[in-house]
């Protein structure tokens, strides 16, 4: 057993699934939509990057940007198809979930029909070099994945903290009713939220494609993991989702090294169940600071 290997793998997994988990969390708390369409956005962005690398350029930043952009477009499409028509209907939570799940399944079948069942590979984005720190070998793709996702997360969090649109989204996350009272339009904000979270998913797709191939259904597993991590983090808390993704990332890499890859989902859900039994609100419940007297 190799501790460093487990640690590094855990961080890499945490970064990729953390992006999706944060996206799920933001959408849920600001729009009240448990968006299961990220499975489709994930594959859609992967194919977008693939088509770009084939027809336009294999220059790494272009491929990366294409994935992020196509992901954002996918988010906007889901917003227009599901959120806009449904959001003011009764029982929107369930309808929205079913609708986005339908988009995920139909979209994946559509990709299967268009591109065929053969897996596609993206060019290597981060080159093929490696550094050695204290006897541990860090390959370029692992460093690239960690750096890219952390930079993306920091950029988004800073943008949400400092800009007018960010204030708008945070206000919606905390109290949608009061947000409309101060003049924030739900529909317009919906497009921003879905565009940004779609971009995060797109980035995750391109990053994961450095390890796995792109296939029409490649988004389903990341979706399940992203949603369960968001659930563990407390659905709606960005910090909670980040911490949860680190916990589950380590759990996954530990399980797959010690027990084997087929047990990953079992241990993951056992951990989630255990934590949610003790802390029903997930990790966000631990982080919340009550008013000091």
């Amino acid at each position: 057993m190799d501790i460093e290997f487990i640690l590094i793998n855990g961080i890499v997994i945490a970064c990729i699934y953390g992006l999706i988990a944060v996206a799920v969390s933001i959408t849920w708390s600001s729009l009240g939509l448990l968006n299961l369409g990220y499975g489709f956005i994930f594959a859609f962005a992967g194919y977008g990057a693939y088509v770009t690398s084939r027809s336009l350029s294999e220059y790494p930043p272009v491929v990366l940007a294409a994935g992020v952009l196509v992901g954002a477009v996918g988010g906007v499409i889901i917003c227009a198809l599901i959120f806009i028509p449904l959001h003011e209907k009764p029982n929107f939570t369930v309808r929205g979930m079913v609708g986005t799940l339908a988009i995920s399944l139909i979209g994946s079948q559509g990709l299967l029909w268009w591109f065929g069942p053969r897996n596609k590979a993206l060019p290597e984005i981060f080159g093929r070099w490696q550094v050695e720190i204290g006897g541990t070998v860090l390959t370029s793709d692992k460093i690239g994945i960690v750096v890219c996702s952390i930079v993306m997360l920091i950029l988004i969090v800073r943008w949400m903290r400092s800009s007018r649109r960010g204030l708008e989204i945070r206000a919606m996350m905390m109290n949608p009713h009061a947000a409309s009272i101060v003049g924030i339009g739900i529909r317009k904000t919906g497009f921003y939220v879905m565009g940004i979270t779609g971009a995060m998913t797109g980035l995750a797709a391109v990053l994961l494609s450095q390890t796995y191939y792109i296939s029409p259904f490649s988004g389903i597993t990341p979706l399940i993991k992203g949603v369960s991590i968001a659930l563990l983090g407390g659905l709606g808390s960005v910090r909670g989702a980040v911490i949860a993704s680190v916990i589950l990332g380590f759990a996954e890499s530990l399980t797959s090294t010690v027990l084997g890859g087929q047990y990953v989902l079992i241990t993951q859900f056992l951990i989630i169940i255990a934590i949610l039994m003790i802390r029903p609100r997930g990790i966000a419940g631990i982080l919340d600071v009550a008013r000091e007297q």
């Binding site: 003011e88 209907k89 409309s180 009272i181 003049g183 339009g185 739900i186």
Partner: peptide
């Protein structure tokens, strides 16, 4: 239907 849909415009 749609409470709050036009609120931001009225505001």
């Amino acid at each position: 239907q749609g409470p709050g849909r036009y609120t931001h415009l009225i505001v």
